[in-house]
Structures are given as C-alpha cells and as structure tokens.
Design a binder for these strands. Sequence first.
RNA 1: GUGGCCGUAGCUCAGCUAGGUGAGAGCGCCAGGUUGUGGCCCUGGAGGUCGGGGGUUCAAAUCCCCUCGGUCACCCCA
Length: 429
Amino acid sequence: MARPEQSFRSLSGMHDLFEPETTRRRALVRVFAERAERAGYGEVRPPVLEELGVFLRMGEATDVVSKEMYEFEDKDGRRVALRPELTAGVVRAFVQHHPPTPWKVWYAGTSFRRERPAAGRYRAFDQIGAEVLGVDDPDLDVEVISLAWSTIAALGLSDVRLIINSLGDQVDRQRYSESVAAYLADHRDELSEAARATAERNPLRVLDTKRPEDRAVVASAPSIAEFRSEASAAHFERVLAGLSSLGIPFGVEERLVRGLDYYRRTTFEIVADSLDAAQNAVGGGGRYDGLAEDLGGPPTDGIGFALGIDRLLLACDAEAVFPAPPTSVDVYVVDTTDGAAARNLVHQLREAGLAADRRYGGGSLKSQMKSADRSGARWAVLIGSDELSAGEVTLRNLRADGEQLRVASSDVRAALLERLHTDREDTTA
RNA sequence: GUGGCCGUAGCUCAGCUAGGUGAGAGCGCCAGGUUGUGGCCCUGGAGGUCGGGGGUUCAAAUCCCCUCGGUCACCCCA
C-alpha cells in the first residue's frame, strides 16, 4: 500500500480540479452551450449510471465495451455501468420519452473508462457534445459538424484538422468489413501479432493502426469508396459539398473508422496537431442510424459528436489560447480593529452586488494589505481605529499608484460603485 | 493489458552515476526591516515518512525486489 491507513488519494486517472481550471472549464462549456442553443439545441442530462445493456450496442467487440467499462451488479441484482460516453444514454432517453423529432440536444458531462491513464486520457473525463435524432438530411450532418468545428474555432484553436469519412450504410459497411477481413487474411503473415488478433475481432479497426509495419499492409487494403451504395455515396457528397460551401476545411480519410460499432455513413474526427501525444483527437462523431432501433425504439436516424474537454484544454495550452478567465473580487476590506466593521461592510457590499472579501483572524495592517493585493481587488477599504472613531473609512486604489481618500462610512458603497464603474469604462474604452 | 522512463519541501527541481560529508536551491508561505499601508528590495523563519513496503550493508534519497502514482509508446479513444 502506498499510503498509511486513514489516508486516501483520488483514484488513478481521476483528478481533483481547482481554480483556475474549474472556471476555465465552466467558461468552455458556456462557449459551447451558447453556440448550441443558438442553433436550436436544448440541454439534456442523462444519468451517469445506466443498465449495462444500454452500452452494449457500442459493440461487443470494442475495447470500450469488452474491457473498459466500470460495470457491476447493484443491490437489486441488476447489471449496471458507469457511462463510458453519452450518446447511448441520450438515445435511450429518446426511446424512453419519444420526444417530437427532430430532437436536437447538447450535453456536458463526465464519463468513465477504465483505461491506462495518460496525458489527455483519464478514467473520469469530461465531454461536451450534441446529438440529433430523426433527421436523415445531409445538411444536418453539415450543421452538426459545423457546430463542433465552430466551437473549437471559438476557443481560438487553429492548429486543428477535420477529417471525415463515410462507412456506408449498414449493408455497405458489412460488405466492406468482410472484404477487409478477407484481405487481411490473405496478408496474415505480414501483420503484427496484435493486428492479427484485431483482424479477427474487428477487421475495420486494423485500418487505422499506428504501427508502421501494419500500415504498409493496410495501405493497399480495399477502399470503402468502392463499397458505398449509390445513396450512401450521394449523401456523403452532399455533406462534403455543404462543408465546402460553409468554408469548413476537411480532409477525406478513408482509413478513419472510429471505434464504436454503431457508426453508419458519416464519421468524422477533429485532431489537434499541437498535441504531439497519441491522444490528439479532440473530438469525433458520426451517424448512428440504427442505434435507436437497437435500443428498442422505432427506426430513427441519428447523428452526434463529442469533444473531450481535457484534450481541448490541452490543445488550448499548446496554442496558448483560451486562458482561464481572471477571477478576483472588486473590493478587499482591511480591518485592524476588532473585525466587526469588516463583517458588516463586506455583507453590505455583497448585497449591493459587489464582489468583496476580507481576512479573518485579523493580522497586521501590512499583512492584511498583502492579502488585499493578492486577492486581485481593485480597491482596498481600510478601517483602523482612526477611521472607526471618525465614522469614516480609507479607500485605497490597489491597481493604480495608490490613490487614497477618506469617505464617510455611509458613503462607502456609493463611492466604490462609482469608482469601479469608471474603472470598467476605462478598461473597455 | 504490454513495454520504457520518472516520483526528493505547497510548486519546479538539484543531489542518486563510483552508498557514509548536519537533506538542498528557486518560487510560494509566515515574520521583521517600515510601531497605520500591498506590489520592488533586504534579513530571518516555518515547512520534508527523500511516494510506500521489504531486502542488501557497519551505513541507503542513493543498490536490489515488490507496490502505488505519474508519464511516453503500443492498444484504444474524447
């Protein structure tokens, strides 16, 4: 054991978040929420815990389902699992409540996957995303991709690429998969051992391998383009044309498969080249036209995407964009008397809408001034025995070069409101 | 899950290669210099199970094993 008894640490791959990271994440979600709602999406919050079966449709052969889920039997004897992503839960909610279509929703939340942690890949990770159920129009694919892309752009990221592919409909995908499986079988002895194992479980997954020795084999594998039905191909062309017309740059990548079995037709991924780690996909998504039916609902077209907040922020760090918004109070109250004046004034200022803080436990004027400085407050209100007996306070400007004045206690609030107001006008001018 | 690297003060790290000189630096924190004034500077101080456990040894932060955590590659994916 790495710790003495009675001492605990957070689980591997799960981290505590603090200021300023927490505010930064809140700001990121706000950027996304505003864009999504401007496009007619409403927020949805499915539960973190679902019946295991909900997630099994991601594909029994996928790693996510076969070995990465936190699943267990609850006290009612039900097999349940912590969600490894949100799409399945959202679609389950759609099937359960049958809202009118098109159903356009966005979400922000935490999912869980028991993988080996690495930078940008944690066991508890946050995503933002959107899903639309009930629309087959390729222009919707364009809208959804555009929402993902523009959110990333809004953060200030520029070293990112959109890659896109179409796996064809269910029939196309099946035929293609069989063809790839046959091809891989023919070249079995040229593949790495790991790739051979993957080929038997899930042939398509071999296509986007990163192992150089396998890439050579994969390079001349059959192309999905030859397997797309006329309708699928037409849909894909419409999507690409739509993206072009919106000025969204993309690269068609036929090897883009993505891990979840429910994807049909359009699939896409956004990668951040500023992230040199292997975890450089900041987001991904696609169509899952059969999923609602698989979960017991009516045949319903669906499409969505998720962006990983952790990776998005890592990419922001790499590009030095989207810093945490500064958080600081407006006013810091310094009281060298018994503290009663600070207690009352801070309360009064907060009720008036100002952000005000103080120090508890007293301390010298000097040390309280240091706290005031560190708080980032623009103004310090000083209350000493002089002020107290005169019924006044001293206002000191902490930002400029120490402008200082005394005002009557009854005028503090108004004096501060006025000065903070002009400060703000100065900074926005 | 497989393999590599790392783990010393709140933070970033030196010391480990050839075991033994009182366990260090910078930043941060606290106090004083300035008995009513922050930011700069100076001085002092607090703070460490050297990730944890076991082993080798007269002696281990330094060597060996195990373990926990982080990280990189594979895998997978957000």
